[in-house]
Amino acid sequence: MGNDASNGVSEGDLEQNDGQQFGRLPATAAERTVEGRASREAVVDYFADRFGIAPETFDDHTFWEKGAGKIWVYGGSAPSPVEIEALGMTCLRTRQEHWKPTTDFVQRFGREADECVIELEPDEARAFAAGEDRDLERWDGDWGYLIAAHDVAGELEPIGVGLYVHGELRSMVPKGRQREL
């Protein structure tokens, strides 16, 4: 991160993250007071750039960090910091090389996406929901995290997060949420 000339705060002057409380994300990087914390602007831009989800989708939501890079989205506002067990739902993991959206986020907001969404055939969707990885050479978009979806009654419904690399779609559906359909 280094020096942030826009607010005159150096890395050594920033607070450390407290993994036991929720801290609201700053609006921009220039307003950051906690070392390594993502900004609201960066999170909203990520969802817009990667998945085509309009920034206005989150106008009535706040973003929070609890733990190291576990970002939560909350439909409302609350005082910050706050020491509670949960606030809204987890939506993103950020303190790693590649940011990863959560299954909960994709199932709640994935209908708003118009990029990096892969539509699965019935047998592919069943395998994905069961946690199975599949060769899928037909994807011609970016590698990385995708929203795996399936047509249900004429509507594309998000199933979860997949990781697409080397012609393979890897199911990121958590073990406890995997289902044989």
Results as ranks from 00 to 15, higher is better:
50 R>N: 14
169 L>W: 08
155 E>M: 06
23 G>P: 00
152 V>P: 00
55 P>A: 14
4 D>K: 08
125 A>G: 06
178 Q>S: 01
168 E>M: 15
42 A>T: 14
129 A>W: 05
71 I>C: 03
154 G>V: 04
180 E>S: 12
3 N>W: 07
16 Q>V: 04
165 V>I: 13
9 V>A: 10
73 V>A: 07
143 W>D: 14
22 F>Y: 11
99 W>P: 08
162 G>R: 06
12 G>F: 12
51 F>P: 12
32 R>F: 01
71 I>F: 01
102 T>D: 01
157 E>W: 13
106 V>P: 05
102 T>Q: 02
72 W>I: 02
55 P>L: 10
173 V>L: 09
114 D>C: 11
59 D>K: 13
136 L>K: 01
124 E>D: 14
20 Q>L: 14
123 D>V: 05
33 T>L: 08
23 G>T: 15
94 T>A: 09
47 F>P: 01
146 L>F: 07
104 D>W: 00
103 T>R: 14
24 R>G: 03
156 L>R: 12
61 H>D: 04
158 P>K: 01
177 R>Q: 14
19 G>T: 14
153 A>R: 07
110 G>P: 04
166 H>T: 06
14 L>F: 01
41 E>I: 04
155 E>R: 14
43 V>W: 02
177 R>S: 08
144 G>I: 13
98 H>M: 09
41 E>N: 12
164 Y>S: 09
131 G>V: 10
167 G>P: 13
39 S>A: 15
102 T>S: 13
59 D>P: 00
47 F>E: 02
142 D>L: 14
66 K>E: 07
84 I>W: 08
69 G>C: 07
90 T>G: 15
159 I>R: 07
175 K>P: 09
130 A>D: 09
93 R>A: 15
87 L>Y: 02
124 E>N: 12
36 G>R: 10
29 A>P: 00
173 V>Q: 08
105 F>T: 02
6 S>A: 10
163 L>W: 06
25 L>G: 04
165 V>T: 12
2 G>H: 06
159 I>A: 03
134 R>F: 01
60 D>P: 00
101 P>W: 05
10 S>A: 09
104 D>P: 00
123 D>G: 04
120 L>D: 00
7 N>K: 11
166 H>P: 00
157 E>N: 11
176 G>L: 10
103 T>C: 13
140 D>Q: 11
34 V>S: 05
148 A>L: 03
82 V>K: 11
155 E>K: 15
82 V>Y: 03
70 K>L: 06
75 G>W: 09
28 T>I: 07
24 R>P: 00
146 L>C: 09
75 G>R: 13
146 L>K: 07
169 L>F: 05
138 R>Y: 10
13 D>C: 07
